[in-house]
Design a protein around this nucleic acid. Structure first.
Length: 552
RNA sequence: GCGCCUGUGGCUCAGUUGGAUAGAGCGCAGCCCUGCGGAGGCUGAGGUCGCGGGUUCAAAUCCCGCCAGGCGUACCA
């Protein structure tokens, strides 16, 4: 890319200056090329002279002057300038910028796609909520984050698989089964109370009713254990279907629903435990089986198998990651967890090491929790007590596009307050409308052009020379950098800001530059720019899993 | 106690990984429709970047110490 070109250009200039112009001979640091935020400072800027000042024992400006004499610019660059205290700024050529519109138009929907992944196989696991209740608002965040990352990685040339780990075995499932059995009996007129540690939510009653309607009272005849487990399986499947529907509402779909239970049926759990044992990471203590994470630099050991013989969540998760890395051979695995799982990170990394894999291959994004409020009142989220605001309720009140945008525009590191009242109030007056309005406006202009039978394929983009036009082009060309940035940082929250920026610059351009006018040549050139803007804006929206409306 | 995350205009948040005058949206005070969608454009007010030290030519950004909030610190998941 251009950045690399400029880095090399500077590098050569310095070396030349050192050879021919008595610039102090020192080893060069890594040359950074940044994009100045102030447009007056050009398109690219380097602080190399400032970095060299110390080792060269010269003033940064003097260094810049010497380097400047030996710079030979690549053809895309119009000029460069030196600015105090020691910046070197580069400005792109206007005609080069205008010409880039053609490459956007040629690429179409694939504009911005990169070849970073080179087919590398990557798995994104997210949401993975226990299917013992409906998704609540907080779960939406991870869902949107994960699905957006999947879109971006796909665009960057990776082979991506989205996975939901279905927790369908273990203690929580037993509790769910017993709770459902109690509700089932209640529905059939029995005086039974839900276990105190059980799931109290009303959705359990609905679930029980549904099952009574369909299956009748035949489970009453079965032994308790059997009845609970059979009912539980039916209930769980229904819950999973509900979850799938909820996720679909916010445009999230998975490639794989991985059954945790399968790890026990196909012996991979046992293989994993044996592997850990063989490698000497396992001990027995107090009748339980422990993973010696402290030997791998952890501050303490962790239980794998309880004294009652049942595996812990941790053991199960190690087996699951054994499956991901060893059985399915993913090159990289990205897990998205809530902040309440942060303590799980170091021991999981240690486990990956114990499995003989590089912990770097496992990337874990910790997503801070959401606090929910209605105006001043804070709502506590608890699935057990049944006091939840479901994702479905939220989507019912706030459009899916708005939900996605809202969840995406905050970095995963910051915990967010979700004020439902505010979200509802602002849903008619928020950036999503602003951005989508820009897209609809573009569509409208292109409709007009079509109606007037203006064929702009032959439009001459070199006619685009004014400020608003060039500013817009500059923004459009940032898309590949944005995508690359998201891949490198795993922070998709830059996307919504970029989309908003495009919309702002476009609206401003629209105000200042009449597109369809009497000047036929200029009209055609501007239509090309407008169409290119539509491509980029739609791409950004689609990467975020949002719609790009033709009208609204 | 220890560990992770956070603290930036009234509110909700960005800040390109140490660079130039700290930016948006909402809200607030104004201005702009004889032309392609006014769900728009333009201008303005509003900031001790939690507090105090330190490193550096340069700190919202790095280091140390406080203060405040969230989460974790289970043979829960």
């Amino acid at each position: 890319m251009l950045k690399e070109k400029l880095v090399i250009c500077l590098q050569q200039a310095v070396i030349k200056a050192q050879q021919e112009d008595s610039l102090v001979a020192v080893a060069l640091p890594e040359i950074a090329m940044e994009r100045p935020q102030n447009p007056e400072h050009g398109d690219f800027a380097s602080v190399l002279p400032l970095k060299l000042a110390r080792t060269m024992k010269m003033s940064p400006l003097a260094i810049a002057e010497k380097i400047a004499k030996h710079i030979s610019l690549p053809p895309e660059i119009d000029s460069f300038s030196i600015a105090p205290p020691g910046f070197i700024n580069f400005t792109l050529r206007d005609d080069w910028l205008a010409k880039q519109i053609e490459s956007i138009l040629t690429a179409g929907e694939s504009y911005g796609d990169l070849a970073l992944g080179k087919g590398s196989h990557i798995q994104l696991e997210f949401v993975s909520v226990n299917p013992t209740g409906p998704l609540h608002v907080g779960h939406g965040r991870g869902a949107v984050l994960g699905s957006t990352l999947a879109n971006v990685f796909t665009a960057a040339g990776y082979s991506v698989e989205k996975e939901y780990l279905l927790n369908n075995v273990g203690h929580q499932i037993d509790v769910f089964n017993r709770s459902l059995y109690a509700r089932y009996q209640q529905c059939l007129g029995k005086e039974i109370s839900v276990p105190t540690d059980g799931y109290q939510g009303n959705y359990m009653i609905d679930l029980a009713k549904e099952i009574v309607d369909k299956e009748g009272d035949r489970f009453l005849a079965l032994p308790v254990e059997e009845a609970a487990s059979e009912l539980g399986e039916i209930g769980l499947n229904k819950m999973v279907e509900e979850i799938k529907q909820d996720l679909k509402l916010i445009n999230v779909e998975f490639d794989t629903w991985f059954s945790e239970k399968s790890l026990y049926h196909n012996k991979q759990y046992h293989q994993t435990m044996e592997l850990l044992q063989r490698e000497g990471y396992v001990t027995r203590k107090d009748n339980a089986v422990w993973f010696e994470s402290s030997a791998l630099g952890e501050d303490k050991d962790n239980v794998l198998v309880r004294s009652d013989g049942s595996p812990t969540y941790f053991a199960s998760d190690i087996a699951y990651h054994y499956n991901k890395f060893v059985e399915r051979k993913f090159d990289t695995v990205i897990d998205i967890w809530g902040a309440d799982h942060q303590g799980h990170v170091p021991r999981m990394k240690a486990a990956i090491k114990a499995l003989g894999k590089n912990p770097e291959q496992l990337k874990i994004i910790i997503c801070q929790l959401i606090t929910l409020s209605r105006g001043k009142e804070i709502i506590r989220i608890s699935k057990r007590s049944g006091d939840i605001v479901t994702l479905r309720e939220l989507v019912h009140e706030v459009r899916p596009d708005v939900c996605r945008f809202f969840f995406l525009s905050r970095s995963a590191d910051s915990q967010m307050d979700f004020d439902i009242e505010l979200a509802k109030k602002q849903s008619a007056d928020n950036p999503v409308y602003y951005i989508q309005y820009a897209h609809a406006r573009i569509a409208s202009i292109l409709r007009l052009a079509k109606q007037r039978e203006i064929d702009y394929i032959q439009g001459d983009v070199s006619l685009l020379t004014t400020g608003p036009e060039l500013t817009l082009i500059r923004r459009l060309l940032l898309l590949p950098e944005i995508i690359e940035g998201v891949v490198n940082t795993l922070e998709p929250h830059h996307l919504p800001y970029y989309a908003q920026d495009i919309a702002t610059v476009f609206h401003s351009f629209y105000k200042q530059c009449r597109v369809v006018s009497k000047d036929e040549a200029l009209t055609k050139a501007r239509l090309k720019l407008v169409r290119a803007t539509q491509i980029v804006l739609a791409k950004a929206l689609h990467l975020m899993g949002m719609t790009a409306p033709e009208s609204m």
